[in-house]
Write a protein that binds this DNA or RNA. Structure first.
Length: 558
RNA sequence: GCGCCCAUAGCUCAGUGGAUAGAGCGCCGGACUACGAAUCCGUAGGCCGCCAGUUCGAAUCUGGCUGGGCGCACCA
């Protein structure tokens, strides 16, 4: 609808210029076509006459009038066009044209809302990527929900999307994990050793040690400590990673690729990129360590890639990792990190520019932290002490649908309060049920209708003459907006727009449905019933499509 | 001290440089002899943190200030 109108307005400006009524404009002015807040201002409104005023050296209202005079509306899309206020042009869409939206929804079905804005470009989105040193916690869940939904939204707007999880299965953290487990293992065998404070303290470490002991017995005590720790590390990382994968499945997320940090070392990629940068003097030696000239590429200081003790830093493998991403020829490379990593962004961006890649193709989105509450009170969490609520516990307690929906309901740049009690409530406090209830209600209507002989209703041109109530028109207009919500959500990388739209559509439907005396869907009037069934089943399609983008189920009954 | 993010109704938050800033919760008052009340209807509630600037026009853009969150390793 909006595209059609946009075309008409552009065409009108062109023909006004051709007729000499307006000065040629180069470049053409960017046009904002929006839906006014107030119904009296039309279905769409544009400010284009006002933005052209200065260049045309004429009054906005005069320009607006000229544009309107040159509008050709061959399809009779418009019922009224007017100049209003300081120079807005307000457009009123002809009533019967709105109903074609219903036809489009039914025809496109699961594809309604998709577009080709991404032009088939290849985009890689890396998210979650939690270290296999402990279970996923609530904050990871938010990153997972945001990343997964962004991927779905990009995919719906014509991108070819690859989701990737980067597994930090190398380095000192894994070593620390091994040490932690080995200490617990020895404690289980009666040895009196204390767990050093810098080791992982969580109770899951005890569990891992117990499993290790049960499976392999006491033989680790006979190994040299070095070997025993390595063995523990490998065992623990594998077990934890298995658990993470299970949690990811339980949360309804799937990854196309799992990329191993260890692979970057085994394949020599890390050494190769360090050598290359050294030969170009982008990496230099100082105080026995190797430093990257990140300061020359926008970071506040240079950063160490190889420490004086010969060990590489996390940054070293990250350089090789991002080089690898670029070498895989993606048009866009997107990283989604927890906001606590924001200080790391300039460094990685700097390394990408230093390697000569196009920095514009790389974007980092920082997801703000989650404050976990129960009944309004903060839940004490300390990763160091190993006291935290795992994502699994939250999924088990409040359910996957509610968890995902609530994680998506805030702009990712805002800190999120997640209240476990609120999340469990099946009321208006909890919008997920509000939206899902629409799907269940409509499913039930369709079931009842089928019992009365209504099945697979086809589009009929009469529908525009039957569905004439203001609230019916309002529903249709709302449905017409859905594709733009998805497109805008993708363009701005803002997944929260989808659940907000869902809430709005749900509210409009519930209100319509509730006044059952005024407009019962299935009535004695066969034509009216068919038209309304066509209307509500279109709503159901959009609810299902939107929930599907969020990874939330659309139940037939609740 | 430096950097990133946030500040809108009592609370939690939406809001595309545009015309009269919205929703849910909460408060108060109402609605089912049923296409499921996990719903609906109504009332009240606002210096859009503060100051300046840009603009025909600012909650929205820019600068400064105040308050809050997070981060500033040869850790990951």
């Amino acid at each position: 609808m909006k595209e059609k109108l946009s075309f008409i307005v552009r065409h009108a400006i062109d023909s006004a210029v051709a007729a000499g009524h307006l000065k040629p404009i180069d470049p053409p002015p960017s046009m904002v076509l929006e839906i006014p807040k107030i119904a009296a201002h039309g279905d769409f409104s544009t400010n284009i006459a006002m933005t052209m005023a200065a260049l045309q050296n004429r009054a906005p209202k005069e320009i607006a009038r000229i544009i309107i005079d040159h509008i050709e509306d061959r399809d009779h899309l418009l019922s009224k066009t007017e100049v209003a206020g300081p120079g807005f042009i307000n457009f009123f869409i002809a009533l019967d044209r709105w109903h074609e939206v219903l036809k489009a929804v039914h025809q496109e079905d699961t594809a309604y809302g998709t577009s080709q804005a991404g032009l088939g470009k290849r985009v890689q989105i890396e998210f979650l990527s939690a270290n296999p040193t402990g279970p996923l916690h609530v904050g990871h869940g938010r990153c997972a929900a945001v990343g997964d939904t962004l991927a779905a939204i990009l995919s719906a707007t014509g991108y070819e999307v690859e989701k990737e999880y980067y597994v930090n299965d190398s380095g000192r953290q894994i070593r620390t994990l091994g040490e932690s487990v080995f200490v617990r293992y020895q404690q289980l065998l009666g040895k009196t050793i204390d767990l050093p404070a810098e080791n992982y303290q969580g109770s899951y470490i005890n569990d891992l040690a117990r499993i290790l002991l049960d499976q392999e017995g006491e033989h680790l005590l006979e190994l040299p400590e070095e070997e025993a720790v390595t063995h523990c590390a490998r065992f623990a990382a594998m077990k934890i990673f298995e658990g993470i994968r299970e949690d990811i499945v339980a949360f309804g997320v799937s990854f196309g690729h799992w990329f191993s940090e260890q692979f970057l070392y085994d394949s020599g990629a890390v050494q190769a990129v360090i050598q290359d940068l050294k030969s170009r003097d982008i990496i230099y030696e100082h105080d026995g360590a190797l430093w990257f000239r990140t300061k020359d590429f926008g970071d506040e200081k240079d950063r160490v890639v190889v420490r004086a003790n010969g060990l590489t830093t996390y940054f070293a493998s990250d350089i090789a990792y991002h080089k690898n991403k670029f070498d895989r020829k993606f048009d866009r490379i997107i990283d989604i990190w927890g906001a606590d990593h924001h200080g790391y962004v300039p460094r990685v961006s700097a390394s990408i520019r230093a390697l000569g890649y196009d920095g514009d193709r790389f974007q980092v989105f920082l997801v703000q932290l989650v404050n976990l509450l129960r009944g309004g009170k903060p839940v004490a969490m300390s990763t160091r002490a190993g006291e935290f609520v795992t994502l699994r516990e939250v999924i088990d307690e409040v359910g996957r649908d509610a968890t995902r929906f609530l994680f998506l309901l805030r702009h990712y740049e805002s800190p999120l309060d997640f209240d476990l009690e609120l999340a469990k409530k099946q009321s208006n406090d909890n919008p997920v049920y509000y939206v899902q209830y629409v799907h269940a209600r409509i499913s039930n209507i369709l079931k009842k209708a089928e019992e009365r002989g209504y099945k697979d209703i086809d589009w009929h041109d009469d529908f525009s003459k039957i569905l004439t109530l203001p609230e019916e028109l309002q529903l249709i207009k709302l449905m017409a907006r859905y594709p733009e919500v998805v497109a805008r959500s993708a363009r701005l990388m803002e997944p929260h727009r989808v659940p907000f739209y869902m809430k709005e559509l749900a509210a409009a439907f519930h209100a319509y449905y509730h006044d059952r005396n005024k407009h019962k869907v299935v009535s004695d009037d066969a034509k009216l019933s068919a038209a309304r069934l066509y209307l509500v089943s279109a709503i159901r399609i959009i609810i299902k499509n939107g929930l599907s983008l969020m990874g939330v189920s659309a139940p037939e009954t609740m």
